[in-house]
């Protein structure tokens, strides 16, 4: 049988096709990545209980008015860049030893024995509530949450490797109060400063305890979570982050302006 030469395919228009695709992708995509601060909105509850009184020392209030003027803990602040320094001071002041005379939140110390005792109490409470006829599932979830919380604390202390855990007062929080006229740039700046302060605090602790920066741990955790790694690998940095979160909790309240 006679063999015919197969003519070569003309690839001259390949470049045109590639250009077309290239231009399509140039137009429909964007280079800048979306960066944001993630915050939680409190759940809407119908019955509002009488709010607990919070001592002034436990509140780190950042206020901004409609003229975009700032006030932090009753002091007028000219430069918003100072918020993070003030916030670090708020966390650090009583960290080593409590001084009741100053206006900063107190720290409390808890030992492993005390945590174990608290876990036992929480379990007993769970069982006792479970036995009540006509109990709601919500309350069981809540009691389970209490147990989980203590368990987390226990794991954190084991990882910490010290005899006791020093915690900031449970009511200590950052309160962001803006008015409806406050411009968004200032609101975002406050969020940025608050984030910066928490980052700095956790970063210092991470370097001291684990010898690596908070950013590295967090990035690795996110990468692990995204990939198809095994479950153990995915969770390997979770206890570290939990510990840092217990040491420097990010309790932010954003007050709705009226």
């Amino acid at each position: 049988m006679a063999r015919r030469d197969i003519p070569e395919i003309n690839a001259g228009s390949m470049a045109d096709i590639a250009f077309l695709l290239l231009i399509f992708f140039l137009v429909t995509t964007t280079m800048d990545r979306d960066q944001a601060y993630i915050r939680n909105i409190p759940k809407l509850i119908e019955q509002v209980e009488e709010p607990q009184d919070v001592e002034e020392r436990n509140i780190f209030a950042i206020k901004a008015n409609s003229q975009n003027q700032l006030m932090v803990r009753k002091d007028i602040m000219e430069n918003p860049d100072d918020i993070s320094d003030r916030m670090i001071e708020f966390y650090r002041e009583n960290e080593i030893s409590n001084d009741p005379s100053n206006n900063f939140p107190m720290y409390s110390t808890i030992t492993m024995g005390e945590i174990d005792a608290a876990i036992d109490v929480a379990y007993d409470d769970y069982d006792a509530t479970d036995a009540i006829p006509g109990r709601s599932d919500d309350i069981m979830d809540f009691k389970q949450g209490v147990i989980d919380e203590w368990q987390k604390k226990k794991n954190a202390l084991i990882l910490y490797g010290k005899n006791e855990l020093r915690e900031i007062h449970v009511q200590a929080h950052v309160r962001i109060e803006v008015q409806s006229g406050t411009e968004y740039y200032l609101f975002a700046k406050i969020q940025s400063e608050v984030e910066e302060a928490i980052y700095t605090l956790r970063d210092d602790a991470a370097k001291e305890i684990f010898g690596e920066s908070y950013g590295t741990i967090k990035k690795r955790y996110d990468m692990d979570k995204k990939g198809d790694a095994k479950k153990e690998v995915k969770k390997r940095d979770k206890p570290k982050l939990d510990l840092l979160k217990i040491l420097y909790p990010d309790r932010f309240i954003e007050v709705t302006p009226n």
Binding site: D34, Q35, A36, Y37, I38, R39, N40, I41, P42, K43, L44, F187, A188, Q191, S192, E254, T256
Partner: peptide
Amino acid sequence: RKELQSIDALTIAYAV
């Protein structure tokens, strides 16, 4: 935020 709260979409992010 209030609208989101009313439908239980409780995670918000402020883009910067």
